[in-house]
Structures are given as C-alpha cells and as structure tokens.
Design a protein around this nucleic acid. Structure first.
Lengths: 121, 121
DNA sequence: CTTCTAACTAGTAATGATTACTATTTAAGT
DNA sequence: ACTTAAATAGTAATCATTACTAGTTAGAAG
C-alpha cells in the first residue's frame, strides 16, 4: 500500500474525528483539504484502510456504514435515531442502562479469519 | 401491526433458518410459499419485524445486511469471506481463537433507546 | 538524479440494494 | 356485513457503492 496524499488525509480525518462519519461525510471533510478529491477515491481508500486494519467499521442500524478510528472501545446505538455513542467504561454488571440510555440488546461480534480462509495462503 | 400471510411466512423463514439470509434470500424462500410476493413487501416486513424486536440484524462486514432469529448468541464474522458463524459458547478467557478461527477484533454493541428519544413519547 | 512500472487518482458510467409510489386488497374492529 | 386503516403487488425512483478508463505518481532500481 503506497502512501498518497489522499489516503493520508482520509486516515487523518477519521483519526481526528469524534463523529462516526459515513463515506460521504469523509468525502466532504476531505474536500476541504483536497477540493477535487473523488468520491470513488474515498470509498477505495476506506476499504483498503479497513483491510489493513487501520480503521474500523460501525454499522448504525439504519443501512449506513460508518467509519471509526482504531481505538478499543464499544458502542451504544440508538434504535430510534441511530445515534452512536462511544463507550469507554463498559460495565457488564449493570448492563440494562448505560448513562441514562436504555439498553435492550447486546451484540458481541468477533472478527477474524475463519478456518477455511487460513488455509488459502 | 396486523398479522398477514406474508409477514407470518417471512418470520417463519427467519426463525427456522440456520443461515443468515439477506433480504433477497428471504424473498427467494418466501416465493416458494407465496409465488407472487413482492420484494418490497419483504423489505417492508423485515424492517417492521426488526422494529418490533421480533428479528435481529447482522452486518456481515461486506455491505450486506443479514437477518437472524431472536435467540441470544454471538457471531464470528470472517474478514475475508464474510462467513458468519453462530457462537453459543463464548468464552472471554481465551478470546484469541474460537474453534480454529483466528479472532482479531471483538466488537460489542449495545442497542437501545437513547436519552433524547426516551423523552419524545 | 533519471527511468520504470505497478499502484493510485479523477471523473464518469454502471450496478444493485433499498425505498417510494399507486391502485388494489384485506385484517380485524364495530 | 360494513368500514377503514394497514398491507400488498408491481413498478419506478433513489442513492450508496463499485467499475471503468485514461492519465498521474510513489517509490524502487539502476
């Protein structure tokens, strides 16, 4: 993976943002620094940065993919407004609420390489 | 929410499937029972069943939304082939692997109603 | 410092999942 | 049975994402 101006700007935007931007949001931010950057370039780089484990993906529960910095924390996602709240102090002993937000479900997803895909290299 | 033949068939398909079907997969299954069911009807019902907390959503890490029965368990998602494996015996003491699958990341997502949305009723 | 080339980019077109729309049908309460 | 809001089939529209192409560039090798 080469280091390009576009890729560096995109990675910086995600690492320095406290929002959970979607691809178009990243595009809008990136255009402030590279006015003629292409939306396709943003999508391509988001995908390669994610494959390289340099950024994370969050699904907001409403058909939108959002991007997040690599920084170990968890998320609360509102089922109504699809707001995403970062959690740095998760406590499983009182999981029914998290700071005045009512918790109705807890999803745990392990990501990695499955047995079959390990054989292919 | 009214009880319709279409909605019942869709809910049954998800509750009786061990796959993690996407919307089109549910549509294909549903057509075996209701040949002229509309794809729009499938999407509409998947959304209303999810809002009613009767089914769950799984994101496969490759821009596809998949649907799952309400049944407390966790998932392993392969970053390469996007296979989804159900986990009923999660053990946090040895989280680096799960049954020969290499675990590289663990996402925990709490879903619910945020503070602001609670006020709106 | 030049040369070389595979990787990358901008811009645009195409794809494909999801939603919107409309006329018609139906569940279920009165 | 009557009524009506909710649901449906079928189709058109939307919009996020990917593919394509000609031109550009990072960075390795001479």
């Amino acid at each position: 993976m080469r280091s390009t101006k576009q890729r560096n700007v995109i990675l910086d935007i995600i690492n320095n943002s406290y929002d959970h931007l979607d691809a178009y949001g990243v595009y809008e931010e990136a255009r402030k620094q590279i006015p003629n950057i292409s939306l396709g370039t943003v999508y391509r780089n988001l995908k390669s940065l994610e494959n390289a484990h340099l950024i994370d993906i969050v699904y907001d529960g409403a058909d939108k993919i959002r991007y997040d910095k690599k920084d170990f924390h968890q998320h609360f996602v509102c089922s109504k407004c699809h707001k995403i709240i970062d959690i740095y102090d998760l406590n499983f002993e009182n999981i029914n609420t998290y700071k005045n937000n009512i918790v109705m479900n807890c999803k745990i997803i392990l990501e990695g390489i499955c047995e079959e895909c390990q054989k292919e290299e």
